[in-house]
Computed example of a mutant assay.
Amino acid sequence: MHAPIGDFDSATPAPDCLDELTAPVADAVRAWRGSVPAEQIVYVDTDPRWADTAVFVEHYGRELLERSANCVVVSGKRGGETTLAACVVLSTTRVDVNGAVRRQLGARKASFAPMDTATGESGMEYGGITPVGLPADWPVLVDPAVADLPYVLVGSG
């Protein structure tokens, strides 16, 4: 299979390569009930050496600059309660943690979650967190610019 975007050596429908995915992502793919068929979730193997956005698009295709997204974990706090959430934005966009995200979560304070919290609570690798397979009680805030794309590349967990 050829990836719908980017220049990758191989692309595989996620249900056909569950052993390549981290446990939470594989479990989510197995139980997938989304509006898009699970077979349209495509796994591409990337080299961590090229994870930086600028290097990534140089290596895998310039069109990915506008078609790749970051999934970042944020922490919202209010009245002693902490809410973890995921924000999915284009890789060219900054997450408005103290504005839009804080308001969306109804938090008094919001910040990027510490790396050990993000990886420990998600079960995914830092820099490879994806909204597919996150804990069910986490809000997932998706920028409309990401939702409007027919395909988007997001970390694989």
Score class of each variant (00 low, 15 high):
91 S>H: 03
91 S>K: 04
94 R>T: 15
130 T>P: 01
30 R>I: 09
117 T>M: 13
145 A>L: 13
10 S>Y: 07
17 C>D: 12
131 P>C: 09
31 A>S: 13
96 D>R: 01
46 T>R: 08
110 A>R: 01
140 V>S: 10
96 D>L: 00
14 A>M: 03
99 G>K: 13
147 A>T: 08
92 T>V: 06
32 W>I: 03
5 I>M: 10
145 A>F: 07
115 M>V: 15
42 V>H: 02
125 E>A: 15
102 R>A: 07
1 M>Y: 14
111 S>E: 13
82 T>H: 00
34 G>R: 07
66 E>P: 05
153 L>P: 01
36 V>I: 15
65 L>E: 14
77 K>G: 00
113 A>R: 00
11 A>L: 06
152 V>M: 01
121 E>W: 09
39 E>T: 15
15 P>Q: 06
114 P>Y: 08
44 V>K: 02
118 A>V: 01
136 A>D: 15
109 K>I: 07
126 Y>E: 00
80 G>C: 02
35 S>L: 13
111 S>F: 00
37 P>L: 10
119 T>S: 11
47 D>Q: 06
98 N>C: 12
38 A>K: 06
2 H>P: 13
38 A>F: 09
122 S>K: 01
101 V>A: 09
57 V>I: 13
70 N>D: 08
136 A>Y: 07
130 T>E: 05
128 G>K: 02
130 T>C: 13
55 V>I: 15
49 R>L: 14
82 T>V: 14
56 F>H: 13
154 V>E: 00
130 T>S: 14
8 F>E: 00
31 A>I: 06
150 P>E: 15
140 V>D: 04
133 G>A: 03
39 E>R: 15
13 P>M: 05
102 R>T: 07
19 D>Y: 04
25 V>Y: 07
36 V>W: 11
46 T>K: 05
149 L>W: 06
118 A>R: 02
90 L>S: 08
10 S>F: 08
143 D>L: 08
22 T>H: 12
77 K>F: 02
107 A>P: 00
67 R>V: 01
25 V>T: 11
51 A>P: 08
75 S>P: 05
28 A>K: 06
131 P>K: 09
138 W>S: 10
135 P>V: 10
122 S>N: 04
27 D>N: 14
78 R>P: 09
100 A>E: 15
38 A>C: 12
112 F>M: 10
152 V>S: 03
130 T>R: 01
44 V>T: 04
130 T>G: 15
95 V>T: 15
58 E>C: 09
157 G>S: 04
15 P>M: 05
141 L>K: 08
155 G>E: 00
136 A>W: 04
100 A>C: 11
18 L>C: 03
135 P>F: 11
19 D>T: 13
23 A>R: 14
7 D>S: 14
113 A>T: 02
92 T>F: 02
132 V>T: 09
36 V>Q: 13
61 G>S: 07
15 P>K: 06
133 G>V: 03
103 R>H: 15
31 A>C: 10
104 Q>A: 15
84 L>V: 08
20 E>F: 12
146 V>R: 04
56 F>C: 11
9 D>H: 10
48 P>W: 01
109 K>S: 12
42 V>E: 03
